[in-house]
Amino acid sequence: MPDRVVQDFPLFPLGLVALPHEYVPLHIFEERYRTMIGECLERGSEFGIVWARDPDDDDDEPRIGCAMEVARVLERMDDGRLNILSRGTRPFRIVEELHHLAYPAATVEFLEDVDEPADPDAGETAHEAYRSLVEQATDNEPDDADLDQMNAYAMAATVEFGLQAKQGLLDLRSENARLRLVTRLFRAATKRLEFIEKAQVRARSNGKVRFG
């Protein structure tokens, strides 16, 4: 079993929140991050994406990020820049930030969920809400077998939510709680799509629709 507490874990502070199972394309251009990704590629090791919040934010809560693996190097440029596709693997908590490496790093603790019985109702409700959203957004119906295998992270990783919502998912240590949260998020997104579709119909009929 991998160590739960790891020192000198590479960090990539960004204006985004990544989730386990989520694919995140990254353009690596700063020298320190080129060094970091180069070492991760050489060692086959992970790095962490953590939401770079406003420095004036007084939130004292532990910073929780998502470990990433380099799924694929998309492009190597002559000047050393890289385009990569990374994939979220597991959540972690920053224990202590470190400043002795060429790139940001920290001692981190990888997080585990609480031991609890699975809630079948929460799973079924989340899957149905996700199915409705996918059908509304794409006119395609998810495969039942594939959908049954998807947990809260896997479903949420395919939908673009706000940063606060994604961070809220990442912070939860209960799959049942995550399923209940994504259900609310999927239903809200579906209602938003329905509103947009109705607005488009009105716009076609009278030439104008106002938001806000």
Rank of each mutant, 00 (worst) to 15 (best):
R87E: 08
L82T: 04
V95L: 06
L101S: 05
A106D: 05
P91V: 14
R63Y: 01
G65W: 00
M77F: 15
A71C: 07
M77D: 08
T89G: 03
H100C: 12
S86W: 00
I84T: 07
V70D: 03
L74G: 11
R87C: 10
E61S: 11
C66G: 04
E69A: 09
L98R: 07
G80N: 08
F92N: 00
D78C: 15
R87I: 07
Y103I: 03
E75G: 07
A67Y: 00
N83A: 10
P62W: 00
G88S: 06
M77S: 14
L101K: 10
I94L: 02
A105P: 13
E97F: 10
I64Q: 01
V95R: 00
H99F: 10
D78V: 11
R87G: 12
V95P: 09
L85P: 04
G80C: 08
E61T: 09
A105E: 00
R76W: 03
T89F: 03
R72K: 07
H99W: 10
D78T: 11
G80A: 10
H99I: 13
I94R: 00
A102E: 11
I84C: 12
L82H: 10
A106H: 05
A105N: 05
G88H: 07
N83R: 11
Y103E: 09
V95H: 03
A67F: 01
R93F: 02
M77P: 10
I84P: 02
E75P: 08
H100S: 15
V70H: 02
R81H: 15
A106N: 01
L85F: 03
R90I: 15
I84Q: 15
V73E: 09
S86V: 08
G80H: 12
H99P: 10
L98V: 06
P91G: 09
E97N: 08
L101T: 02
